[in-house]
């Protein structure tokens, strides 16, 4: 098992750096402001991380094989609108239906990308436009509050089994499923191989296009899930709900140590990356960083974290 583990992760030291960074940050904030280290605060941080992580997990699939998905915030917003509309009409069926829409948008991006051979940056941006337009039309540019009847269906999101917000469990479930997909299934293996050497993977008889379409579908599907969770927590859907989440999600992926050019990294690392992002955000408020200066600190931490976590041995030319 140890052998298999190092098989997946490559360098073990490299993999440990983000964890060390996370623990260091938590301790640092805890020393400066001991109230940060209470169970309640940490649970809040983790609950806040869950949606960010789920979005980031989706992008991780795409980044692993060397692409990028810029459509996730639009997909998350659309799904919040869809859930809000559908809950009153079809009850629990609203959730699978919304997830399905998410998967389909992702599959659309993927197919256009591999068939028309257009860079993923452009394709997913275009998909983003389409999806955002759909969200605006469906919601008539308004946020949709979910009525009392609908809220009953949302208890699996808002509940606190054993005193722990259920979104944390959902996030953990996604993390486990994602790690399983990446480490134990052919899809995960092929994704990493495509990111590290697409030509060789293709010439080994791997169905490269299929893996790509799966990755984009998963990415958008998880974005839809994140949208559903956000809707549940806010009890309303809105066409601009997730608009500020794309960048932090990408940041979480790269801070975790997944290479933006693909081939190295994974969902496990994204868990750490997302936690680092959340801890920095919440921690800054705790420590008393001027609210206006927070973004500066955040940007600087981002660059620093990447500078520390990035594995330079595998990159020959840095673009």
């Amino acid at each position: 098992m140890t052998a298999t583990k190092s098989l997946r992760a490559g360098g073990r030291v490299q993999a440990a750096i983000p964890i060390v960074l996370l623990i260091g940050l938590v301790i640092l904030i805890g020393v400066l402001q001991p109230s940060f280290l209470t169970a309640d605060t940490l649970l809040v941080v983790m609950a806040d991380t869950a949606t960010l992580f789920i979005l980031a997990a989706g992008i991780t699939f795409v980044v692993m094989l060397g692409g990028i998905d810029l459509s996730i915030q639009a997909v998350a917003s659309l799904s919040s609108v869809l859930v809000a509309i559908w809950l009153g009409r079809i009850g629990y069926w609203a959730f699978p239906a919304t997830l399905l829409v998410g998967f389909i948008t992702g599959a659309f991006s993927g197919v256009v990308h591999v068939r028309l051979r257009i860079p993923s940056f452009i394709v997913t941006l275009a998909t983003s436009g389409l999806v955002a337009a759909a969200a605006l039309l469906l919601s008539q540019e308004r946020s949709i509050t979910i009525g009392e009847a609908g809220r009953a269906y949302l208890s699996w999101i808002t509940g606190r089994p054993f005193g722990v917000p259920s979104v944390i469990f959902i996030g953990a479930l996604v993390a486990c499923a994602g790690i399983w997909l990446q480490c134990y299934t052919p899809f995960g293996r092929y994704s990493a191989a495509i990111g590290a050497g697409e030509a060789a993977t293709w010439a080994s008889g791997v169905k490269v296009n299929r893996q790509k379409v799966i990755a984009y579908s998963l990415s958008a599907g998880l974005a839809a899930l994140a949208g559903i969770l956000l809707t549940g927590r806010l009890s309303s859907g809105s066409p601009t709900l997730a608009n500020e989440l794309l960048l932090p999600a990408i940041a979480a992926v790269v801070v975790g140590g997944t290479s933006i050019t693909g081939g190295a990294g994974g969902i496990g690392r994204t868990v750490i990356g997302a936690l680092i992002i959340s801890v920095v955000r919440v921690g800054m408020t705790f420590v008393g960083v001027d609210i206006f200066a927070q973004q500066i600190v955040f940007g600087a931490v981002l660059i620093l974290a990447v500078a520390i976590t990035i594995d330079r041995t595998k990159i020959l030319i840095v673009k």
């Binding site: 098989l7 490559g10 052919p186 293996r189 990493a192 191989a193 590290a196 050497g197 030509a199 060789a200 993977t201 010439a203 080994s204 008889g205 791997v206 081939g263 190295a264 595998k314």
Partner: peptide, 19 residues
Amino acid sequence: TEGLVLSLPLAVNVTLSKL
């Protein structure tokens, strides 16, 4: 470029065509 994914381990390359 076409034979091996150089930055992956030997075992991964051996099983790339059939896992």
